[in-house]
Nucleic acid binder design. Structure first.
Lengths: 230, 230
DNA sequence: TTCATGCTATTTATATGACTTTTAAAGTAG
DNA sequence: CTACTTTAAAAGTCATATAAATAGCATGAA
């Protein structure tokens, strides 16, 4: 978690409206600025700032006379951690999980392969640390989810590709939210310690193909478990 | 293009500041709100709204007393079309192109495979239309870049996976910007008409593996051409 | 010294009101 | 029926006042 602070008014309104949009509470437009102010008891400044934030994430668009209209889903920035979180919280369907896995099944094996090619000593250090944490987690000395996320983080950082690195937030947000909301997802990430060690070894030895296949197999198996009774 | 309107003050400031951040004009913090107002001759409302937009994209974070600080690059939402555009415009390096291709080399073949599995009749119609446009483009009756983007769009829509669909904006933004700023990228997308037709056929016949390989080969070849003299 | 506690000044956060610009839709002239 | 004009609704912009958060300093006790 670590989200220390009490959210301020603007942040609060942003989350409330964002979640409401994702939940489908509004058909194709939001109430006018004035009405939002009244309904939520906040000033126009805060309302406008919240609207700007949601615009920046592609959810809405506001224009004079037309009001605040919801954008077609294509424009929603699904890789934005907030948007992803609102999506997962509001519609945690099996279908969404399937789509999420379809994406990871592409990105994660390739991340492992790129890591094997581009990893620097400091990346190896981080990977080793995360493996240690996973080992600790097995004996209850560390949190399993946090350890998994640390491994994914170290793995993706080792690719030295900014687009893959961006996916760290994507993946960890999804893991955190789903693990909190769905029993089905408990412990579903890189929980297999033995395989992770094998991936680590492959990366150290710069065996990209091996790393690729190990991760691919691990995810395929995981996906089958999670989506078993579709 | 089609971006009809003159940008308003807030949008303008957002782009100016966003680009400046990506260009590295600010070390680790932006000037204070008050100073931004003065320097750009805009009101505080507009300044704050622009700041909120950039915060929503993960570029900055503003807190009382601390001011407006630039976030670590990990938090930047690279899949946001604006952020991607600013990145490409400000640092169109060969390395960035490499990273972009590494990503497409993973997503596009898998998109083709998923399209073969999940495409509905309407998706086939759109794919066919885009192929027609590419054919037109060859004889100068249509714009080659637009036709390519139409193909990518139809392809990714056919996956029926919202994360892949999100990548449409990512890919088309990158194609549009790079083709405008770099001669090296001229005509670099799906320009090979014959292969695209083959991909289309594979999708129609639900041959996921074939579609996957065709796209992968096409992109690999394209990548080698573009990154030839690294 | 060293650590905690309270003060202060700076910067963003919030609220309010006035005015401007954009634009969909109604109205009007031809 | 078309093309132009008017109107009014809603967001866009500006200015100002006040509140809240907080980094850094100062003060004082152990």
């Amino acid at each position: 978690m670590a989200e220390t602070s009490t959210l301020n008014i603007t942040q609060n309104l942003t989350h409330t409206l964002g979640l409401a949009i994702l939940r489908g509470d509004f058909v194709d437009a939001l109430p006018s600025e004035a009405e939002i102010c009244e309904r939520f008891g906040v000033s126009r400044s805060s309302t406008r700032e919240a609207v700007k934030m949601l615009s920046a994430k592609g959810l809405i668009r506001s224009r004079p006379k037309q009001g605040i209209r919801i954008q077609p889903e294509r424009n929603w920035n699904m890789f934005d951690p907030d948007v992803l979180k609102w999506t997962l919280v509001s519609k945690p369907t099996l279908n969404l999980l399937r789509e999420f896995f379809e994406m990871r099944l592409v990105t994660d094996p390739q991340a492992a392969a790129l890591a094997a090619q581009h990893a620097l000593p400091e990346n190896i250090v981080e990977l080793r640390k995360s493996i240690d944490r996973m080992r600790d987690a097995e004996s209850g000395l560390d949190d399993s989810l946090d350890a998994d996320i640390a491994f994914v983080t170290a793995l993706f950082e080792a690719t030295h590709n900014r687009f893959f690195i961006q996916l760290i937030e994507f993946t960890s947000t999804a893991l955190r939210v789903t693990s909190r909301y769905s029993n089905r997802m408990q412990g579903v990430s890189f929980s297999n310690l033995a395989t992770c060690i094998a991936v680590f070894d492959a990366i150290v030895q710069k065996q990209a193909d091996t790393a690729f296949e190990l991760v691919q197999n691990m995810l395929t198996q995981m996906m089958e478990t999670v989506l078993a009774d579709t």
